[in-house]
C-alpha cells in the first residue's frame, strides 16, 4: 500500500540521497517525491509517496529518523493530513472546442496559465484521484501533455519537533576511552 512520508531535513548536499538511498536499497520504487526549502532556508520539507510493505513502515520511519540530516520523519498515511498534487497540462484546441474545454476545466477548478491559437496551458490542484479524472476528461478533447508535481502534504497534527541541543567542545578534550 502507498505510504506518504513527510520529512523535515537539513538543506545540505547529499541529504536527499540519504533518504532515497534508504528506499532504493530495499528495491522500493518511489511513486512521487517533492522537496523544497522551508521558511527557514537551512531546512527542506520533503514529501515522498512510496509503496512499502505495511510491516516495514515503522522501521523505515525509524531508519529515516536515524539519518543525521533528518530532523523529523513522519508517516502521514493514517494520520490527519492534507495531501495535494498539482498538474500542469498543455492541450491543443480547435476554435470549436475552446469554450467547452474552458468550461470543463472550470469544473475541476483548473486555471488557464497560458493561452494561444494552438491551445491552452492549464493548472489544477487537488487530490490525485480528482486530478486523474481531470486528465482523463481533457484527454477526450485532444492531444495533451501532462506534468504532475507529485504529492505535497501537511500534517494536521501539531507534532513536537525534538532537536538535539548544541554540544560544547571543551579544549584539549579527548574522545572517551573505556
Amino acid at each position: 500500500m502507498l505510504m506518504t512520508i513527510s520529512l523535515l531535513m537539513e538543506n545540505k548536499p547529499g541529504a536527499l540521497m540519504r533518504v532515497t538511498g534508504l528506499l532504493s536499497s530495499r528495491g522500493y520504487n518511489i511513486e512521487s517525491l517533492t522537496v523544497a526549502r522551508t521558511l527557514d532556508p537551512s531546512l527542506s520539507r520533503m514529501t515522498i509517496t512510496v509503496d512499502v510493505d505495511s510491516r516495514l513502515r515503522a522501521l523505515v520511519i525509524k531508519q529515516m529518523n536515524r539519518l543525521v540530516n533528518v530532523l523529523q520523519a513522519a508517516d502521514l498515511s493514517d494520520s490527519p493530513a492534507v495531501m495535494r498534487e498539482m498538474v500542469l497540462l498543455r492541450i491543443r484546441v480547435t476554435m470549436e472546442n475552446r469554450t467547452a474545454i474552458l468550461k470543463e476545466a472550470e469544473i475541476f477548478g483548473g486555471r488557464v496559465v497560458d493561452s494561444s491559437v494552438e491551445g491552452f496551458a492549464l493548472e489544477a490542484t487537488g487530490d490525485p484521484e480528482k486530478l486523474e479524472e481531470f486528465i482523463a476528461v481533457m484527454e477526450s478533447y485532444g492531444e495533451i501533455e501532462v506534468t504532475r508535481s507529485g504529492m505535497v502534504a501537511v500534517s494536521l497534527e501539531a507534532k513536537r519537533l525534538r532537536l538535539a541541543p548544541p554540544i560544547p567542545k571543551s579544549h584539549g578534550e579527548t574522545v572517551e576511552a573505556s
Partner: peptide
C-alpha cells in the same frame, strides 16, 4: 580557530 561547539540538530541520541 578551535571549534567550541558542534550542532547537529537532527542527530538525537
Amino acid at each position: 580557530a578551535p571549534v567550541n561547539e558542534i550542532h547537529l540538530p537532527g542527530y538525537k541520541v
